[in-house]
Design a protein around this nucleic acid. Structure first.
Lengths: 119, 119, 119, 119
DNA sequence: GTGGTCTAGACCACA
DNA sequence: GTGGTCTAGACCACA
């Protein structure tokens, strides 16, 4: 696993975890690996993992039980919202890119569908 | 203008110029700014711009007339190809991102269209 | 080693290296000297050697392993093609020269064979 | 007409004139253009043309009649010798190039003949 | 140690 | 004025 040095590592790890949650590979209420394990598996500093968990908590995506660990939120609505938010960010980035190429929304959709069909 | 340190500056400038061409903001046969002017406007070294022009030429996107300057290709087909290539790269990145969220092609398209309508 | 000022040094070095490869004095997969060593042995700037390696790579004659060095292609077909290409260039230059002397293809071959026999 | 700055212009012009003679486009005894005309047609300095004529004379290829101009030698043998000499130089350069590619005399001839056939 | 990139600054050919 | 090449020297990522 390599990180893009242009963005803080903690943000990149946050995105990785959010993807796991949104994709359902991590279920609501499920326990996240310990800070220590997480640090090992990503070969990053435990302090960085702590920050990730803290930020995820402040976003409501996770919660921490003192002495028990950090868990995925049990609020299904929250996961749904997160999913929508992340998907919309991708859409935005996609449309922005197409804009920069001078490609209209309609054509962007057409190109996308064509690409999907040809797969 | 600031550059992302994760990618070589010359590549980033290449993309910027290609976008101008694909979007038609730079017409076929049009003269690009001189190496020196380009260097000033992006506050980078003229050598770096030289490399950009050389690479664009090797991709067939531009051509150089010795002592006259560097110009956008007059080959409309080439511009079309470039446009398609760059659009497909965006599509790919979009679908890959959706994949990572566990979102199917169909839903990806649906989310995209919903987003467009709501604008 | 001195270079002909009529041609860019980087091109001349490219030719020298290609000859080594075509003649089999550098084997497929063999490591080329490091950029720095090459620069010293030709008394040119490392940047110029870098350009040589980059161009050879873009021609498929060499490939680079990040942090490991630059190597002769392992593709024997590519070497064969290169050999043919370089030989044909010599033939062309030879026939062109003979043309300029008003010497026919047949006589050109005859003179060549005579020269070889007399060696 | 451009000259290769790597060699003295007078030598390059000498070769051009010798080619004319060897190819029979300038006949034995024929008058060469005046120094002045030659200088104009090649856009070089008349002094350079003078030197060319002087050197050609010292090689026996031309001769000068005071007040009349410079002429191609009338000695057919001399022209023949020149022709042979120039052809052999081409042969030598050809074989030397092939040597550098590690290509034998036999194969060099084979490649040459193949190229001729395919024309 | 390996190649890759970049800047600064120079000189060149061509127009 | 135009791009092309080259040197000197620095810093970077990867191994």
């Amino acid at each position: 696993m390599e990180f893009n040095s242009a963005f803080p590592i903690y943000m990149q790890v946050m995105v990785l975890i959010k993807r796991e949650i949104v994709a359902g590979r991590m279920k609501p209420g499920e326990k996240l690996p310990s800070v220590r394990d997480m640090a090992v598996s990503y070969t990053i500093n435990p302090n960085t993992v702590s920050r990730v968990y803290r930020e995820l908590e402040s976003e409501g995506v996770c919660f921490t039980k003192r002495g028990m660990g950090t868990f995925v939120t049990e609020d299904a609505e929250c996961v749904k919202r997160l999913r929508k938010e992340m998907a919309e960010e991708l859409v935005e980035r996609f449309l922005e890119g197409m804009d920069q190429l001078g490609i209209s929304r309609e054509e962007a959709v057409a190109i996308l569908q064509e690409e999907i069909i040809s797969e």
